[in-house]
Computed example of a mutant assay.
Amino acid sequence: MQNDLILLHGWGMNKSVWQLCEKELSNEYNGAIYSLNLPGFGGAAVPDKEYSLASAVQQLAKQINDNSTIVAWSLGGLFALYLAKYYPKKVSKVVLVSSSPCFVEQDEWEGVSGQVLDKFKDQLVQDSNKTIDRFLAIQAMGSEHAKEDIKALRALLKLQPVASKQALSVGLELLQKQDLRTLFSRLSIPMYGVFGCLDTLVPKRVCARMSELNPDFSYKMIEKASHAPFISHRDEFISYLKSIL
């Protein structure tokens, strides 16, 4: 019997983004497949204590069985790595989808400008819906069918309740301030990645850096994909996922 397959979404999104992939994977994957809402997203409760990566992962861990494979997109990747470190019995394998242990550019590390995330934080206070729309546009930037990708994500997003403002705010803080590179380098479980060559949020050079940090990490680069390869290049994404499961 195969282990559970857990699907985690990214910032501003909810578990519905995995709906199409879930259907296709269920035809061939013998284990249970669960897409989960991160705390505060899609109607999920926020942590009782102060919302942090630690408290959010503690809440998430209660929904995950031992020895699960975690497939995590974007912000969800930070949750997956933290889960693998502090709840090791829960995680047998991690697949990062357009995700990085450190999203903000640093010395010799490519990523998003901290100023860009500052602008999003300011905009979030004024209008959360417009902020999410702008974030969707950045995620699809460079994709050969960007308009269709944004439309698909927006439609899936509407299938669940809107995210809480607290979760949106803390999520941006996590993207801006979390640096899990040391944690990532010390994990000894199998880790994989799927990335888009045109991604502006997780630039392609980051993938090679990640392989240098951890020799157990291997990845696939999808040439014409941006930040949401499981939407824009679903067949290629599913095919790769099946090969490593």
Rank of each mutant, 00 (worst) to 15 (best):
L241G: 05
Q63Y: 10
F103T: 01
Q139C: 14
R209E: 12
L60G: 02
R209T: 06
A146N: 02
K220W: 10
S239K: 14
Y192H: 14
S26C: 09
L174E: 03
Y34W: 06
P47H: 11
Q139G: 14
K85V: 03
G193R: 04
Q139L: 10
K165C: 10
P47M: 08
K204G: 02
V95N: 00
L153S: 07
D118G: 10
V170S: 04
L201E: 03
D149G: 03
F41G: 03
N214T: 04
Q123R: 13
L117I: 15
V116Q: 11
L180S: 13
F120E: 01
N27A: 14
F237T: 12
V125N: 07
V46I: 15
Q2M: 14
Q139R: 07
K220C: 12
L20K: 13
Q106V: 08
D179G: 09
W73E: 08
H145V: 03
A80H: 05
T182L: 15
K121V: 09
D199Q: 09
C197A: 15
A45M: 11
K158V: 07
L60F: 01
L36N: 00
I132N: 09
L245K: 05
G10L: 06
Y51P: 06
F79P: 08
A72R: 09
L38E: 03
L174W: 01
P190A: 01
I222G: 00
E24P: 00
P47R: 04
S128F: 07
S143I: 02
A80M: 09
T200Y: 06
W11F: 08
P47F: 02
K85Y: 05
C207D: 07
S243L: 03
D235E: 14
S68K: 05
G114V: 12
L180D: 10
E108Q: 14
E236H: 03
T131F: 01
I244A: 06
S211V: 07
T182I: 12
P88W: 01
V97D: 04
A44P: 04
Y240Q: 07
D199R: 08
A61I: 04
